[in-house]
Structure formats: C-alpha cells, structure tokens
Amino acid sequence: MRIRTKSSRTNVENFTLNLASMIDVTFLLLIFFMVTTVLIRPEDRLTPLLKTRSDETAAQQDFQPQRIEVLIMEGLPTYRLSDQQFTISTDLQAALMPLPKEPGIFINVEDQVPIGFAVGALQAAHDAGFTKVTYVPVS
C-alpha cells in the first residue's frame, strides 16, 4: 500500500509507508489470541447437603424425610421413590411435586449409577421445590 501526501508548498514530498510487515504481525497476533483463547461453556451448580449412610440412619429417629434411591435395575439406571420407579428425571420431578417439602429429601446414590443420572435426581428435587436436598452415597 502506498500513501502519498502533498504538502501545500510547491515542493512535493513523497511519503511512503510500507504496511506489509504490520499486516504480518497483526495476523500473527490474531492467530496467537485465537489459539490461546479458552472457550468456557456456561456452568451452574447444585448444592446438596452431604450425609453418610450412618448419619441418615441417625436422622431417621427425629423425622422421616422423603427418599429417592438412584440405582441400577434390570441394567437400567432408575429412580425409585417408595414403590414408584422412573427412568426420566422429569417424571420423578412430577411425582415429587405434591410431596411435603419441609422434612427435606435424601437422595441415595449407588456406586454403579452414572453421575449425570444421579445429578438428574438432585435437579428434579430442586425443581420440585425442595430446599433441603441431601446427597447420601451408598457404597
């Protein structure tokens, strides 16, 4: 690229600016920032209380919270709420809706269940309006 400026004076002065190197550096910077940029997916969180199996047994003496069991039944990850069984978290949420929320809810998660499925139970309990959701590992 060539830029020419003409002075108002009679003597003409040629001014040349070579932009080739700047374009190189600019592209280099662009590539550098593109490579080093980390794309972060939007994240959120669920905050369950933590209890062990023994704590849960002790707590039962005072009150009887609802309990969801997350387990493998006939090869499929399943949510069990008393005598009802679900394989989809939205169905579980619908079943949790009419339950009393005050005593809270325990979610017993067995070792073999995928974490994504177990977290589905936490989400269902949260969406159903339970504020006291407790994660209980079952090993």
Binding site: R41, L46, T47, P48, L50, I115, L122, Y135, P137, V138
Partner: peptide, 21 residues
C-alpha cells in the same frame, strides 16, 4: 463421587456444590 463425598462428610464439610453444564 461417593468416596469423595464420604471423605468430605467425615471431615465435617456440610455441603458441596456439584457443577452442571
């Protein structure tokens, strides 16, 4: 996750946040 939660609970950590996408 169960083993981690059990350890945390034994250490007195009352709640944990589980990240979701």
């Amino acid at each position: 996750l169960n083993r981690v939660v059990t350890r945390l609970q034994h250490m007195g950590v009352g709640a944990a946040r589980i990240a979701t996408e």
